[in-house]
């Protein structure tokens, strides 16, 4: 499968970079270039329309391992900035999501009133909101990680609310009746019954939430290129036609998202093992 993608990618690179290569060749008065030479040169342009895989991975390598981590050119440095915003936003979003879910499950008025607003919040395009948040907060002196984190939070609380409302409502009536026969307090019902039964739902929601947190952080960075981060690399790359740089940043972002989802999955397995799930 991977081989097929790479093959397709190389073929597409020839096709998409061909017009520019033709121009280059005619400027150099080259005619009758053999196809193999032509293909090799489409894969080695400085600013290709579609960079070839080996160019992208060379750039990824150079910009991470090959560059000092404190350098502004290091993608590891920018990935670190993005990661910080993502994690803070994810933590805030998860807390907000759980908080809202608890209110919805325990309070009838919240149950009726909150959900439509929560759904409406997700119909607003984040690309429209993000600059307003970043610029608005920047105007009152809040810059750096927090505006990005707020955008991440805005995206990531949603799956957590939906999952946790479902999760906190999973206990069956006999399990709730059982708590009633013990004369358990609402807090005991929550901590000993509703919360543990919602844990599997929490992890499923968090897996979705952390991936879109990263998207939120990158989108937040697009609106403020002073702070750095993968979003800024994407933006400067596109300003300067540095397609290789864009693709490298994209791959780092994708790798980061995958690593974060795997990390949540690992935490889920630890929790499951503690809670006696079947191996």
């Amino acid at each position: 499968m991977l081989a097929a993608i790479v093959l397709f990618w190389y073929a597409a690179a020839i096709w998409m970079n061909a017009p520019w290569q033709d121009t280059l060749n005619s400027r150099a008065n080259l005619t009758n270039v053999p196809f193999t030479d032509f293909a090799l040169s489409t894969w080695a342009q400085a600013k290709p329309v579609l960079p070839s895989p080996h160019q992208v991975f060379a750039e990824v390598w150079n910009a991470t391992i090959g560059t000092d981590i404190t350098s502004k050119r290091s993608l590891a440095y920018h990935a670190g900035i993005t990661l910080g915003g993502t994690l803070l936003g994810f933590a805030l979003g998860t807390l907000l999501g759980v908080g809202l879910a608890v209110m919805i499950v325990h309070n009838d008025a919240s149950n009726r009133s909150l959900m439509p607003w929560i759904i409406a919040s997700q119909t607003i395009p984040i690309l429209a909101i993000a600059p307003m948040v970043v610029v608005g907060l920047g105007a009152v002196g809040v810059t750096g990680m927090l505006p990005k984190a707020l955008i991440s939070m805005y995206l990531s609380f949603f799956p957590v609310v939906v999952g946790m409302v479902k999760g906190l409502r999973t206990p069956e009536s006999i399990q709730l009746d059982l708590m009633r026969t013990y004369n358990a307090s609402p807090w005991q019902v929550f901590s000993k019954l509703r919360w543990p039964s919602a844990i599997p739902f929490l992890f499923a929601s968090m897996k979705v939430g952390i991936a879109i947190s990263l998207i939120g952080a990158v989108v937040g960075e697009l609106s403020n290129n002073a702070g750095g981060g993968l979003g800024v690399r994407l933006l400067t790359g596109s300003y300067n036609g540095q397609t290789v740089q864009i693709w490298a940043a994209l791959f780092i972002a994708a790798g980061l998202a995958a690593a974060l989802v795997i990390a949540v999955g690992f935490a889920e397995r630890l929790a499951n093992a503690r809670m006696g799930a079947r191996a």
Binding site: I174, L178, T181, Y182, N183, A184, K192, P196, I199
Partner: peptide, 30 residues
């Protein structure tokens, strides 16, 4: 006053608790 113990049609054990933790549940609550 917790005057009675109630046994339901289904065991209604909490799957995330071991047997002794399940038996301990009312003791913790009370």
């Amino acid at each position: 006053n917790r005057a009675y113990g109630y046994v339901f049609q289904a065991p209604a054990l909490y799957p995330w608790r071991t047997i002794e933790q399940n038996v301990a549940l009312p003791l913790e609550i009370m």
